[in-house]
């Protein structure tokens, strides 16, 4: 299999994979980058959405060969040098997420929207975010968070300290 090289979250990576293999599976199963999720495998729910050169793509239907030499940004690479993107602060403060499974995709789609259109209307949000499904029904808060970021509410904003959620329980490891 060919070696494919691209930039992932600011660092060069090389993978040995069939160039037709979906980028999502390469990211998750070969590179251990688990922020983008599997939802449908056919580009219909946007759960796997990440950025290529700043634009949102469905990684499940993007062949890894197509990103050779390009910049791939997943949710893990959105914060730069530990500084959160305003949209991440908005998502926390607006309490957008419920189960959270679709939210990496929602956030990356919203970043792409704002990159291209810093002041989207409700119609713009309907059109661009319409491909990202959320079963918990968080749409109103997604809409609210996007508008708040567009209004600059999170350019200088500090999140309060929060408790820790332990995803694998073991008090000894803490």
């Amino acid at each position: 299999m060919p070696v494919i090289t691209f930039n992932l979250n600011g660092k060069p990576v090389s993978v040995d994979a069939d160039k037709d293999e979906g980028l999502l599976y390469v990211l998750r199963d070969r590179l251990g980058v688990t922020g983008p999720k599997y939802g449908c495998g056919v580009g219909l729910d946007g759960v796997c959405t990440s950025l290529i050169d700043g634009k949102a793509v469905r990684t499940c239907i993007t062949p890894v060969g197509a990103v050779e030499g390009h910049q791939v940004t997943t949710i893990e690479g959105l914060a730069k040098d530990g500084v959160l993107h305003p949209i991440q602060k908005a998502w926390v403060d607006t309490d957008v997420a419920q189960c959270g499974y679709c939210q990496a995709g929602q956030i990356m789609q919203a970043v792409s929207l704002l990159n291209e259109n810093p002041h989207p209307t409700d119609d713009d949000i309907d059109r661009v975010m319409g491909g990202n499904l959320c079963r918990c029904g968080t749409y109103f808060r997604i809409r609210t968070a996007i508008k708040r970021v567009a209004a600059g509410e999170y350019d200088h904003f500090e999140l309060p300290p929060v408790p820790r959620t332990l995803y694998q329980k073991d008090p000894k490891e803490e």
Binding site: I75, L78, V92, T165
Partner: peptide, 12 residues
């Protein structure tokens, strides 16, 4: 806000 809201928003 949900206690792991930041974890969700950062992919953790």
């Amino acid at each position: 806000s949900r206690m792991n809201a930041l974890d969700i928003a950062t992919g953790k």
